[in-house]
Design a protein around this nucleic acid. Structure first.
Lengths: 261, 261
DNA sequence: TTCTTAGCAATCATTTTCAATCATAAAAAT
DNA sequence: ATTTTTATGATTGAAAATGATTGCTAAGAA
């Protein structure tokens, strides 16, 4: 196996687990311990991962270890690296002093990490985002009214007068279950309702989806593609899908890869 | 198991339970007692958790503070104990399936601990109560809309349409800065506004104050004593104050002392 | 109070991990 | 074809982590 190939696999392993041991990597890659150590040292020097005694860990350790909803905890780990790149690009679109809305979804959640050292007015219906920003940032945080759903970690309300009507944001960032020609899709009708209500409070709508979401379909449409201002995704997006998005008139941002190719 | 992995798991355990013992962690992690102690010491030095005799507890305002062996002033300790007794008596007033509102204040906050194993519909403008109930109980949790204030850990909104209008509760439990002949008092006008708005959504109003609050005064009146249905306090209340309260027609509950004499 | 037990830090032996070194094999350059 | 460079694997002494033991202290019970 080639050196680059090993590096690539090591980074994937590291981004998916909080920590991998040298022994695990030896097993996974079939190389000697010495080689793995050299690889880990190299990637560490290159700033691609964090070396710890006994193995390596991600540069971005899971920000909230005390996640409540299992489904949420799981969805956070798949495609973690791509999601992080997307989230980083999204955070870069914000300026200090700006007012933004962040919706649910694990990609949007990762934005919180990149807003840590910023001063932004954030409205969110995601309880974990609120919790993280409250404890780790200087951002001001505003919540809509509603019931707290454990599985999705979202605040949702069946009533239209949920207090979000007084909020205005220049941008809203949100994730989704799937994206197709017909629009942006979610599974739960309550999530759709909560998201669309927030969407009306924002001037620009920015969709955050890792490229795997273009293959996903779901049952309920949040909004049409033409209603979006920007879509941020990772480099895995197919040219066909890229063309389709651009045809709808929305700006497509492909987050730069932070991985070794 | 890897060191980082242990640290991560310990932090999860600590954030999920009010207090976790060394023995529990030994069991959970399969490492020796010495190692666990070293880990706990490390995390303590790193400021990630609070070390207590026999184990570790969360850094964030632990609902159940270990009374023994704390360098707090004795009066403070007694106050905490009194608050806990009051909170326990308050929780005993609730029945499963009931809808209640819990306001801010440290006494009300302690109620959360006693609602852990209950099934109650709770609306609260206290972020920490919401967080605790979401993670540790089966209660359903509903929030009003508003901005999150870090110092008070409260959700407050200047707008009347904050989403609480659709909620109804049989009882509202709330604390206060001080209590006098003129009524229940608080310092911050925003807190007064938020509390009074919630008070209107409840059938019965239950005030939770440890007896030291009868000596306190403050600048803004939340409501008059005659508007209260019940006042719960501890055994430290003076007979004079007791008479005054009973004269207003509200029920006075003196929480039984749980302290060993 | 005094006694008993549980918790804790310090110590030491053992095991694991690590970086440096060397030797070999593969690849590249001459 | 030969030399040079590079990558890999094995070895080794040092450093770090772990687990068991011990003596001490604090908490709780009698």
């Amino acid at each position: 196996m080639h050196e680059r190939e090993r590096h690539r696999i090591i980074l994937v392993e590291v981004s998916e687990k909080p920590v991998v041991t040298i022994a695990q990597l030896v097993e996974r890659l079939g190389a000697s311990e010495a080689t793995i150590r050299r690889d880990v040292n190299f990637l560490h020097d290159a700033g691609k991962l964090n070396k710890v005694r006994g193995g390596a860990e991600s540069l971005h350790p899971p920000i909230s270890t005390n996640l409540v909803g299992r489904p949420f905890a799981i969805s956070q780990t798949i495609n973690a690296q791509a999601k992080r790149e997307v989230a980083k690009a999204a955070a870069a679109m914000c300026e200090d002093g700006e007012s933004i809305i962040i919706g649910g979804g694990s990609t949007a959640y990762m934005m919180a990490e990149y807003l840590k050292n910023r001063q932004i007015h954030v409205m969110t219906n995601s309880f974990v985002i609120a919790e993280y920003l409250l404890k780790n940032s200087k951002c001001s945080v505003t919540l809509p009214a509603g019931k707290l759903y454990r599985e999705q970690n979202l605040i949702l309300s069946p009533f239209p007068e949920d207090g979000s009507a007084n909020f205005y944001a220049s941008k809203m960032f949100f994730g989704a279950q799937g994206v197709g020609k017909l629009g942006v899709m979610e599974t739960d009708p309550q999530i759709v309702q909560g998201t669309t209500r927030l969407l009306q409070r924002a001037e620009q709508r920015v969709l955050l989806v890792d490229s795997s979401k273009f293959a996903q379909r779901s049952s309920m449409i949040i909004c049409e593609l033409s209603e979006l201002d920007t879509v941020i995704t990772d480099q895995g997006i197919e040219p066909k899908m890229q063309k389709m998005l651009e045809a709808t008139g929305c700006r497509l941002v492909i987050a730069p890869s932070t991985q070794v190719q």
